[in-house]
């Protein structure tokens, strides 16, 4: 992979972190404002993809990165599953077991923010894994 022009690289250096931060903001405020785990997760993945595309060096693409993002994805969705199962132990599947808190605060709505975070990790890992897979395929050549 050839990198992009210095313009793109420089802008990426400045912006990637902010996009990442914005993605996390969307994830964390999913229960207060529009957005949530799916949207925020995609943004987080986009931040990484941006860095990756701008850098574009062949050594950035590796099987290990693919495995790691796939593992992040598994961890995210496993967390979601565990949150659902805690409810099952206490009574019913997907029971909202945490206190509801005061509305409009960040820590409210029981396990909804936690679910959002789990989904955010899952989505980010998923999209980045797909991206890396395509990149590895191209870099390594299939058969």
């Amino acid at each position: 992979m050839r990198g992009m022009t210095p313009i793109v690289k420089t802008v990426t250096r400045g912006m990637a972190g902010m996009i990442f931060l914005y993605g996390i903001y969307i994830v964390l405020h999913g229960h207060l404002t529009p957005g949530g785990g799916f949207a925020g997760g995609v943004m987080v993945a986009a931040a990484f993809v941006l860095v990756f595309l701008a850098k574009g060096s062949p050594e950035a693409v590796s099987e290990a990165k693919k495995e790691r993002s796939s593992m992040a994805e598994s961890l995210g969705i496993l967390t979601f599953w565990v949150l659902a199962m805690i409810g099952l132990i206490g009574g019913t599947f997907f029971y909202n077991f945490l206190t509801k808190g005061k509305p409009f605060r960040l820590l409210s709505a029981g396990f909804i923010p936690l679910n959002n975070i789990a989904i955010g990790i899952e989505v980010a890992g998923a999209l980045f894994a797909i991206f890396i897979t395509l990149a590895v395929l191209k870099a390594g050549g299939k058969k």
């Binding site: 598994s74 969705i77 599953w81 199962m85 099952l88």
Partner: peptide, 11 residues
Amino acid sequence: AIPLAMAFVMP
């Protein structure tokens, strides 16, 4: 839940 858990743990 059982097959999902195993599927998530596998990777």
